[in-house]
Amino acid sequence: MQIDIITVVPGLLDGPFSHSILKRAEEKGLAIVRVHNLRDYATGKQKQVDDYAFGGGAGMVMMVEPIAQCIESLKSERHYDEIIYMTPDGKTFDQQLANQLSLKGNLMILCGHYKGVDERIRQKYITQEISIGDFVLSGGELAAAVIADAVIRLIPGVLNDETSALTDSFQDGLLAPPIYTRPADYDGMKVPEILLSGHNENIANWRFEESVRRTKERRPDLLEGTDFDIGEKRN
């Protein structure tokens, strides 16, 4: 997979892709993230990428021409399965969408900045508009990094244990159960005996029941319209 990110502040993305899982994914040749400075596609001495909004009002708007030039240049190199615009009024990002995007080959992500982009860019080029939550950031760069991280870790071979991603919260519509490691007794707080039993079926049932219990307590909205119930055994 290749993810191309268009931004006016490329420095914000220096860190997330040079460490940990994302760095290993690139080293393995499984995924690469390229960051493109939008100002490289602007004209004039000032390399201007924003202008005042027609009709007045506070804030600047990202201009059509630099964005269009950048997108067209990238599209001339390869086909993109999705061209994503990070925006607060987009579809809320979730695990299901991450799963879907992880099956794609090439993604382009446009990071909004200032008051956003000229609407004509959204109409002509954007195939998906995504938000990571009902709040506003200074720009879409951090949100784009979140998308890339969530998607790349799902690519087969990226994680050392590929089953790890399958047991993450939200993969089955539930939050993950409590987890423990050594020591088995810390300051009088003991690991549940069932996890030390070695009985795989009982452990799986316990984890499922704890996932349901935790989801009901913390995110009951995830269970709306489902038949999950505490005490129900995993099939």
Rank of each mutant, 00 (worst) to 15 (best):
I3K: 01
D4A: 15
I5L: 01
L12N: 06
L13F: 10
D14R: 15
G15Q: 10
P16K: 04
S20T: 07
A31V: 11
R34W: 00
K47P: 03
D50P: 05
D51P: 09
G55W: 06
G55V: 03
M62A: 08
E72N: 12
S73N: 10
K75Q: 15
D81M: 08
I83N: 01
I83R: 02
Q100H: 13
S102E: 09
L103N: 03
K104I: 01
L107H: 02
C111S: 08
G116A: 11
D118V: 12
R120D: 09
I126C: 06
T127V: 11
I132M: 04
G133K: 10
F135C: 12
A144Y: 05
A145D: 11
A148D: 02
A150H: 00
I152Y: 05
R153Y: 02
P156A: 14
S164K: 00
L166Q: 10
T167P: 00
S169T: 04
A176N: 10
D185E: 14
D187K: 07
L195K: 14
G198T: 12
G198H: 01
R207S: 06
S211M: 02
R213G: 05
K216M: 15
L223Y: 05
L223F: 08
L223R: 09
K233W: 00
K233Q: 02
K233S: 07
K233L: 12
